[in-house]
Design a protein around this nucleic acid. Structure first.
Length: 131
DNA sequence: TCGATGACCTCTA
DNA sequence: ATAGAGGCCATCG
């Protein structure tokens, strides 16, 4: 599911159909995306936050889905620590057998976060309270 | 304009 | 632990 998206990501971003002259990654609608990307980029190493927490910290309470969207369309150039964003309760969202799942688990463990059965240790989960 | 689709969440049962 | 219902909302065909 992600493979296709990932493969198509570059071209997709280069041509993000700009209706009525609005700019791809600089317009007003992207304010939310910028905020989300900013929050994600500030998640400390060795810690993880949920989609909902990120949305909240970005000033978008209740819009967890937008966090997912923001990460999906995030330019690679930003080098966001996307692996530090997990679903509620510390669950990894990707299918257990997927490449993305293994990659996320690998990156997390690489920075000392325990991952078991697609779950990160509760201790590593941050609510991003002071952002 | 409308309906379907998500890297989602919370509450119930 | 699992499942369903409802909610949220940008995108897309």
């Amino acid at each position: 599911m992600l493979e296709g998206v990932e493969r198509r990501r570059l071209t997709g971003l280069m041509t993000p159909r700009a209706p009525r002259g609005s700019v791809p990654v600089a317009g007003q609608a992207n304010e939310a995306l910028q905020a989300i990307w900013d929050v994600v980029s500030r998640i400390p190493r060795g810690q993880v936050a949920s989609y909902g927490a990120v949305a909240r910290a970005a000033g978008l309470p209740g819009r967890a889905r937008q966090t997912g969207y923001a990460l999906r369309v995030a330019p690679r150039g930003l080098h966001l620590p996307w692996h530090r964003v997990v679903a509620a309760g510390g669950r990894i969202t990707f299918p257990a057998n997927s490449h993305a799942h293994r990659e996320q688990a690998r990156r997390l463990r690489a920075e000392g976060v325990a991952v078991r059965n697609g779950r990160v240790a509760a201790a590593a989960l941050s609510d991003l309270g002071d952002f």
